[in-house]
Design a protein around this nucleic acid. Structure first.
Lengths: 134, 134
DNA sequence: GATGTATGATTCACCCATGAACGATCTCGC
DNA sequence: GCGAGATCGTTCATGGGTGAATCATACATC
C-alpha cells in the first residue's frame, strides 16, 4: 500500500541501470539509443525538431545529444536546401550498425530482467502500469 | 512481452513527473526531499558520507545537494569536533517544516496517481515489481 | 614520534534534461 | 515587396547524476 510510488520509481531505476550498464559496453546510453532508434525507424534524415518530438524531449536536449553522437561518428548533420533554418540528422553506416547491436543487447538484458516473470505476470504488469495516473 | 522494460521506465517517469510537479510548488524536488527525509528519519546531524549511503548516491552528489539545501536555509553544515575531516548536515527548523509539508504533498499526489488501482491491484503491482532483476 | 595508508569532503569533467533568450530564416497578410 | 510574427537550431543557466583526482585529516604500525 504505502510508498508504492517509490517502489515503481525504484524498480524503474534498477531496470534503467541494467540497460545503461549493458549499453555502456558499446559506448551508448539510453538517451543516445533513443535518438538512434528514431532515426533507424524512419530510415531517413530527420529535422532536429521532429527528432525532439519523437524523443519526447526539448530541442536543446537534442542539440546536445546530436553533438555527442556526431562526435561518436554515429550520426551526421545535413543541411536542408529547402529550409535554411533546418538541420537534419542522419545515421551513418556505423550508426546503423551500432543501433542493431544495441537492440540486440537491450533485448538480452530485458529477458534477464524479466526472467522471473511468466507471460501472465508480464501482461498483468503491463495492464497495471497502464492504469496509473488515470 | 515486448518493450516491457520501457513501459516500466515510462510509467515511473510519469510518476516522477507528478511528484516533481507537486514538490516544485514548495521549492523542493525528489532529490532534495530524499536528503531531508534521511535527516528527519535519524533526527540528528549526519556526516555527509552517511547521508550518501542512505540516499544511495555518491558523495559528490551529496556535496552539491547540501550546497543547494543550505542556500535554501533548510539544512546547515556543522563541523564535527571529534573528526575535523567530517562535516555533518543538520535540518534547520525551516527544513523540518518543509519536510513535513512535502510528505503531505507526496501522500496526496500518490493517492491521485494510484486512484485507478484497488487495494488488490496495488499489492499485485508491488509483488510483480519486487520480482524484477531476480 | 615518523611514516604510510585509509577516509572525509570537495572540485572537476562529463552526461542528461529543462526552460529562457537569441539570431537566422521563413511565411503570411497587407 | 515588406513588415510582423512564427519557427528552427543553438547557447546559456540551472538542476540532478556519475567517477576520478585532490587535500586535509585520522589512524595504524614500526
Amino acid at each position: 500500500m504505502n510508498d508504492l510510488a517509490f517502489r515503481v520509481i525504484g524498480a524503474a531505476h534498477e531496470v534503467e541501470g541494467r540497460l545503461e550498464g549493458a549499453l555502456g559496453t558499446i559506448g551508448l546510453s539510453l538517451a543516445k539509443l533513443n535518438v538512434l532508434k528514431a532515426l533507424a525507424d524512419t530510415d531517413e534524415p530527420l529535422p532536429l525538431s521532429h527528432l525532439a518530438d519523437r524523443c519526447c524531449c526539448v530541442r536543446s536536449n537534442i542539440t546536445q545529444l546530436v553533438d555527442r553522437l556526431e562526435a561518436d561518428r554515429l550520426v551526421e548533420r545535413l543541411p536542408d536546401p529547402a529550409d535554411r533554418r533546418s538541420v537534419r540528422a542522419a545515421l551513418t553506416p556505423a550508426g546503423r550498425e551500432r543501433h542493431a547491436e544495441a537492440v540486440r543487447l537491450v533485448g538480452e538484458t530485458e529477458r534477464e530482467v524479466f526472467a522471473g516473470l511468466g507471460e501472465e505476470d508480464r501482461q498483468a504488469l503491463t495492464r497495471l502500469l497502464g492504469r496509473l495516473g488515470s
